[in-house]
Structure formats: C-alpha cells, structure tokens
Design a binder for these strands. Structure first.
Lengths: 212, 212
DNA sequence: TTTTGAATCTAATCTAGATTCATAAATCGC
DNA sequence: GCGATTTATGAATCTAGATTAGATTCAAAA
C-alpha cells in the first residue's frame, strides 16, 4: 500500500534510520522500471530486476508481495508521473494561451517525460499493451484520466475553431498519442536531439490539426 | 525454410493430395498470428495457438521446430505482407501522382492491412518491440526494407518541395509510423469506421508535413 | 554485552509451459 | 482391402523462473 512507511519513528518519536534502509525499495522499483523500459514486459525477469538493484531475487519479496505487484506499481507510478508532468506544464501557461499552443506544450511535456525524465513513464507506454488484464484493469482509472486530459485539450481547441473540421477528434487524439508513445521504440539520444524531435512533433501536430 | 513444400509430387511427378493436408500448417500459422495480435507476445501460449487451430499442442511440432520458429515465421510473413500491400498500392498510382498523394496512399494501405486485412501485420506492429533479440535480428532485413520505402517516400516529397523545411525527415517518418503502428491498440470496428480513421490520418499527415 | 527486529542471503520447492516420444488414427498408393 | 506413410495424440519429461523456508548478518537499543 503506502510507499514509505515502516517504523520511521520509535516509541518516543526519535527517528530510526530504518527510513534510510527503505531506499532499497526504491532501488528495486527503479530497477524494475528501467528493465521494463529496456526489455519489455515479456523479457523482464525478476532476476534481471534484482541484479540491477544489487540484490538477490528473494530480497524483492521483502518489499513486494509478487513480481506482478511490483510491475503494477511501476506502471501506476509511471502513469501518474506522466500525467502530473503534463498537467504541471499546462498549469504553468498563461490563462490566455491559445488552445493549439496548449496542445503543443503537452506534446513537449509528454516527450520529455517519456524520453528523458522517467523510466517509469517509458515503461508505461512501451508495455501497456502487453500487460495481463489484471494489471491493466488497475491502471484503467489513471490512464483514463490522462486520456481525458487530451480529450479536453482537443475539445477546447475545436470549440475555439482551432482544429479543422475534417479531423475526427477521437481518431486524431489516438493517432497523436500513438506517435508520442511509439517514440521510445526508435528515439535514441545519440542520433538526433530531443528538442529536434519535439519541434518536429509540435509542427506535425499544429499543422496537422490546425486551420491553415 | 520454404513455406509450403512437403511431398507435393510423387516420384513420377503426379500430384499427391498431401498438398491439401498442409492446410493444417496454415491454420496453425494463422492461429498464431491472430493470438499474437490479440494477446501479445508474452501472453501467447503454444496451447492457445493449438486450441485456436483445433489441434493439440504437440501437433504444432509436426510443422514447426519450435514455438520461437513459429512466431518468427508469423512475423516474417506479417512484415512482408505489410510491405507488399503498400508497395502494390503505390505501384497502382499513375506515374505523375504528386508525392504527397503517394504518402497518403501509403497511409491508407498501411492502415488497411493493419486493421482490416491481416492479423500477421497486426502481430508485427504490436509485438516487434517485445521480441527476443534473436527473432528481431531475423526481421531486420525485411523491416528495414519497409522503413526504406517510407524514407524514400518522404525524401521524394521533400525534394519536390512538398514538405515544409521545419520538419526533420527522420523524426517525421518515425512519428507517422508510430501513429499508424499504434492503431491496433485502440481501433475497434465497433466505434468508428475504418475509412474515418484513414481520412483523419491522411489529413493529419498531409497538413502536418505539407506546405500550407 | 545481550537482545531484537529488520534486511538479506542460500538452498529448496513449485509450477506453468515448452518439448519429446512412443504409439494411435487417418490417408495413400496399389 | 492392405501394408506404408503421413498426421496427430496422450502421457511423460525437462526447464526456466517465480516463490517459500529457514538461516544469517548487522545495527541499534536496552
């Protein structure tokens, strides 16, 4: 359940260094995120995760009830981070920002988390289609919220007359998210800068959806 | 190796109906393609495939040396069909078709195979990122050819001045292919027609890349 | 010092699936 | 119809990996 609560304080309220020890849990979680983002769900062994975290496989069970649970948590964190990062970026914009600019800001934020900031987010977009129904169901609420965010972004733009009429909003939204979600499959910092990709993506979306 | 060659001819060159029997092989292959396209690599059990093909798991081994080999063949077929379908569509266009129209034709053809015509193609785009390095290596030649096709399409359009200068060709190509490849994750015949998706995708690409 | 509980390990267990194999059923050439 | 060959099966076997059990380390508290 709660991410960081073992006995953080003794009976008298003095701090117990057990706080520090729980860093291991985070190492394991991060190792899982990275492994998932690199190898994908099917190829991710518990032993790979353990090794990357510098620990033996059974130690994982001290912190997580099962491999499945661990992976589910990675996904939940990733989905949340992605949404929060994009929401934060949008919230930082002036109130009178034109709707199409807001969309472009979301494109940028999405690509930044995905490609640069968070293995968790990458793990989500690379694996969400491969997860057992079980885990997928638990993600549904969170991923739904993210979809809603984009739906809203497009709906406002359309309402403001900033999106052409030949564009079907649902299809457009999914096509754009597809383009973004696919990036981890091909993008590599060594060939082409992140900002280059972001610029092209923004231009593609702006002109692809917008009125001439 | 060769897809359909058991004893198709007897010693004297007379046709042996064993040809017909090898339909089982195709059923198994098709069952594998469909299962892969629906459940993804990690969740695809040999027993699922066998069941869908109406056969017991060991029977698969009569036609394929291993599960891995079977899956590799599905992928190879899928990659090939995808490319051939798109190539055929392009070849059918008049020689003087403007480059951007050619790109739109490719978009349409790609989506048609992917979403409507072939489980094999769907299997490829849904799973290519999850495959063991082993199989992936064998696909490389074929998928490379498909990428080349698109690279060429975009290069010609740029040469003809039909693509804006702020567009990075490699990034654009991958973003577009991402949008297309992601469609099997969300598209469903029951919500929205295929032609609707195709139209939106074409418009997105045409205006997204093209000069105003 | 002794005690305790958290954190981790090694070694063993358990299980889902893939694969093998010896044989049954179907089919074929005659 | 009848052996030979092709096709498919049920009943093992084998193995990778997840999971459990129990022992061990170690830091801090008593």
């Amino acid at each position: 359940m709660n991410t960081t609560s073992r006995n953080t304080t003794s009976a008298h309220g003095t701090r117990t260094p057990a706080v520090k020890a729980a860093a291991t849990r985070n190492r394991i979680l991060a190792a899982a995120a990275r492994t998932l983002s690199l190898k994908g769900y099917s190829a991710t062994r518990l032993s790979d995760i353990a090794e990357r975290a510098g620990v033996r496989p059974p130690a994982v069970y001290y912190y997580f009830p099962s491999r499945e649970e661990l992976i589910a948590e990675v996904m939940a964190v990733g989905q949340l981070r992605l949404r929060e990062h994009v929401e934060t970026a949008l919230a930082a914009l002036p109130d009178d920002t034109p709707p199409m600019d807001r969309i472009c800001a979301a494109v940028e934020a999405h690509l930044q988390v995905e490609l640069h900031l968070s293995d968790f987010a990458t793990a989500v977009s690379r694996n969400s289609g491969q997860l057992p129904e079980d885990i997928r169901a638990r993600l549904r609420a969170d991923s739904g919220a993210y979809f809603d965010l984009w739906r809203d972004l497009l709906a406002r733009a359309r309402a403001a007359g900033a999106i052409r009429n030949d564009i079907d909003l649902r299809a457009a939204r999914m096509l754009v998210m597809g383009a973004l979600n696919w990036t981890p499959e091909w993008w590599n910092p060594r060939q082409g800068s992140l900002t280059g990709v972001i610029r092209t993506a923004q231009s593609l979306v702006r002109h692809g959806l917008g009125v001439p």
